[in-house]
Design a protein around this nucleic acid. Structure first.
Length: 142
DNA sequence: ATTCTCACA
DNA sequence: TGTGAGAA
């Protein structure tokens, strides 16, 4: 089974990223493609790693977190250790998102309140919103 | 076409 | 977390 390699442009086209991004990931230590002279040759394993990197990004992890999880550097934490780390990251990320969702909910609620106040005031001064909402407010009060 | 480096947001 | 530009 001959090793098939990918050029940088092949990968950028497949994953809709730029060559700059790919080199950037390499500079950050997330990828280490083989070289043929100056040219980068990405192995199927590199391609798989890239997939993992992009998935990590979709999930909102930083590149450094992703590099931890993929375990590219120095010591090998072992698969069990790696899975443990992954689960920790997932837990933390979930907490982050839940908090964000809560904050968004609070903001939406406050927007409702401000809007209600504005509509009420508009009704008081006898104005009408473009959507006729002020009159609706009056109808509801009637 | 691909590489590197420096600057920049 | 990337991008743009210039030079090789």
């Amino acid at each position: 089974m001959q090793q098939r390699f990918y050029t940088i442009t092949q990968l950028t086209q497949e994953f809709a990223i730029t060559t700059r991004t790919l080199r950037f990931y390499e500079a950050q230590g997330l990828l280490a493609p083989q070289r043929r002279g100056r040219q980068r040759l990405y192995s199927p394993a590199d391609r798989t790693r890239l997939k993992l990197i992009l998935r990590g990004k979709r999930l909102g992890f930083s590149l450094s977190e992703i590099s931890e999880m993929i375990g590219m550097y120095g010591k090998a934490p072992g698969e069990a250790g790696q899975l443990r780390l992954l689960m920790e990251k997932i837990t933390a990320r979930r907490a982050e998102l839940l908090e964000k969702r809560r904050d968004i909910g609070l903001t939406l609620k406050e927007l409702d309140e401000v809007e209600a106040g504005a509509r009420a005031r508009m009704a008081e001064i006898g104005g009408v919103f473009e959507d006729g909402a002020a009159s609706i407010v009056r109808e509801e009060e009637a």
